[in-house]
Amino acid sequence: MEDPPSRGIALALEAVHRTFRSTAGGDVAALAGIDLCVAAGSFVALLGPSGCGKSTLLRLVAGLDRPERGVVRLRPGAPGGDVAMVFQDAHLLPWRDVLANVALPLELLGRPRAERLPLAEQTLARVGLGDALRRHPAELSGGMRMRVSLARALVTAPRLLLLDEPFAALDELTRMALDDELRRLWREAGLTVLFVTHSIAEAAYLAERVVVLSRRPARVVLDHEVALPAERTAALRAEPAFAREIGVLQEALRRGAALA
């Protein structure tokens, strides 16, 4: 159903290596030869155990870090504002109200003031926070803060959205609501989404394709197209097809954990 050409960014990682110096003095390989292609406009989940190098991978894609070996290619290339990132916690500026937090990326990119606030307002309305513009992060619940964080990522109309276990700290109900929201936003906006998670159910529910990574140093254990309808609702979580997907991913995750 996503037939029109996507405005999303396509992504290619070739033999990407990244090693960190540990405090003990030794070298710890986070990524050991990752190959990964992500089609423009797709929704891909990276599933792996905690601390396996998933976040390192996202930072490389975002251009916040460089690989020692291998290449990370974005097509088309990404000028400022085209890549957005959502972190594990909301990470808002506590001294700014919700509206000013969401307008921040536009401000940093040097967009004129008259353009910033209306855009931020519209984006907040899209994540269901149209009536909380003047509140400060300290006055919001965890779920609301994460919505603000999502709005801040979407306000520049990015073509690649990177999410690093964004809903891990939220309660189950809030998390499921945000999952639905994220899928809706993705289908509306036609962007590429790379979603890092350690939750099997979340990966299966959200993504078109799940890439399962082994434990550190991360390697691709399974590259799996999720055989679920494009229209996903909460009822899907109870269906046998969903359980089958979970089973496949679980098995791969287990295999990845056994790899030395």
């Binding site: 916040l64 990470h91 921040l104 940093l108």
Partner: peptide, 26 residues
Amino acid sequence: VDPALRDLFRLHRASGLAALWKLRLP
């Protein structure tokens, strides 16, 4: 300063002065 926020500023190509004024000093 929160490293994630530093990353956010870098991701949006914020200048050192903008990062000082809008993130680090506050």
